[in-house]
């Protein structure tokens, strides 16, 4: 039972100090979670602390491998709108 930080992490340090279990550490190329230490905040907080401050959608996965913050949930940008804008830029 542990969360996982994946490669879309931008190394902003925000999650590291809020982890109640000190499970998050700086690493290359991005921050990592020590699965032995991560408690998914159980007993400390009702919500994942790391995922509650993380600004990057999809960067932190739950133990099922699902994005805790799915696309559009943090920025408010509808995923199809983002895809459209990116496609537009690619075409230039």
């Amino acid at each position: 039972m542990a969360v996982k930080i994946i490669e879309s992490c931008v190394n902003c340090f925000a999650c590291e100090p809020v982890c109640p279990s000190k499970a998050i550490y700086e690493a290359k190329p991005h921050f990592l979670v020590d699965p032995k230490k991560c408690t998914e905040c159980e007993g400390d907080f009702p919500v994942f602390q790391c995922a509650s401050i993380c600004p990057i959608e999809g960067a932190i996965l739950n133990s099922l491998g699902e994005a805790i913050n799915p696309p559009g949930s943090l920025t408010g940008i509808p995923p199809e709108k983002m895809a459209e804008a990116m496609a537009e830029l690619q075409s230039h």
């Binding site: 931008v10 902003c12 340090f13 925000a14 920025t75």
Partner: peptide, 14 residues
């Protein structure tokens, strides 16, 4: 100072 505690609509943290 890389961490932030809010999101602004004019900012992209990536």
């Amino acid at each position: 100072a890389p961490a932030c505690n809010i999101q602004c609509h004019y900012c992209n943290r990536k």
